[in-house]
Deep mutational scan, measured.
Amino acid sequence: SDLEELEKFAKTFKQRRIKLGFTQGDVGLAMGKLYGNDFSQTTISRFEALNLSFKNMCKLKPLLEKWLNDAESSP
């Protein structure tokens, strides 16, 4: 289901973010620079904790996926 997908992604996202050495705040700032939407550390934290509305989670997921792919592919 969509919800299970989101839960899986949130977990994976957190693990990969930590492995890359980024804080939640770093992610929020980087996404602001890249996509012009500033995200607070709290928002990233709540995403990882599945603590946002389903609609908000769905809106954030593609942006976070893109950020993660970019972060992992940059030298």
Score class of each variant (00 low, 15 high):
Lys61Arg: 11
Asp70Arg: 09
Cys58Arg: 12
Ser73Lys: 09
Ser73Glu: 10
Ile18Arg: 09
Leu64Asn: 01
Leu63Thr: 09
Phe47Asp: 00
Gly32Arg: 15
Asn69Arg: 12
Ser1Pro: 05
Glu72Trp: 05
Cys58Leu: 11
Thr43Asn: 04
Lys61Gln: 11
Lys59Leu: 12
Glu65Trp: 04
Met31Arg: 01
Lys59Phe: 15
Leu63Tyr: 05
Leu52Met: 12
Leu52Ser: 04
Gln41Pro: 10
Leu68Phe: 03
Lys19Gly: 12
Leu68Thr: 03
Leu63Glu: 06
Phe54Lys: 13
Trp67Met: 03
Glu5Met: 13
Leu6Ser: 05
Leu50Val: 11
Tyr35Met: 15
Ser73Asp: 12
Arg46Lys: 15
Glu5Gln: 12
Lys66Met: 05
Leu64Trp: 00
Asp70Val: 07
Ile18Gln: 15
Phe54Asn: 10
Phe54Tyr: 15
Asn56Glu: 12
Arg46His: 10
Ala71Lys: 14
Lys55Thr: 12
Ala71Gln: 14
Pro75Ser: 08
Asn37Arg: 14
Lys66Phe: 04
Asn51Pro: 00
Phe54Met: 15
Glu72Asn: 12
Glu72Gln: 11
Leu29Val: 12
Trp67Gly: 01
Leu50Cys: 08
Lys61Ala: 09
Gly28Thr: 15
Ile44Phe: 01
Gln24Cys: 05
Ser45Lys: 13
Leu29Tyr: 08
Lys66Trp: 05
Lys59Gly: 07
Asp26Arg: 03
Arg46Ser: 12
Pro62Trp: 03
Met57Gln: 03
Val27Ile: 03
Leu68Asn: 01
Pro62Leu: 05
Leu63Gly: 08
Tyr35Phe: 05
Phe47Tyr: 04
Lys61Tyr: 07
Gln41Cys: 08
Met57Ala: 11
Lys14Ala: 03
Lys59Tyr: 07
Arg46Pro: 00
Trp67Arg: 01
Lys59Thr: 12
Gln41Asn: 14
Glu5Pro: 04
Trp67His: 02
Leu50His: 15
Asn51Phe: 02
Glu65Gln: 07
Leu50Gln: 09
Asn69Val: 10
Lys8Gly: 06
Lys19Leu: 15
Ser74Thr: 10
Lys61His: 05
Met57Asp: 02
Phe22Arg: 03
Asp70Glu: 14
Trp67Pro: 01
Lys59Arg: 10
Asn56Ser: 10
Leu63Trp: 08
Leu64Cys: 06
Ser74Asp: 08
Ile44Trp: 01
Glu5Leu: 11
Pro62Arg: 06
Asp70Met: 07
Asn56Tyr: 11
Leu29Asn: 09
Leu68Lys: 01
Lys19Asp: 15
Lys55Gln: 15
Arg46Asn: 13
Phe47Asn: 00
Leu52Arg: 01
Phe47Gln: 00
Pro62Phe: 04
Glu65Phe: 06
Leu29Lys: 14
Met57Leu: 11
Ala71Val: 13
Ser45Asp: 09
Met31Cys: 02
Glu48Thr: 00
Thr42Asn: 14
Ile44Gly: 00
Ser53Val: 02
Ala71Cys: 05
Arg17Gln: 02
Phe22Leu: 15
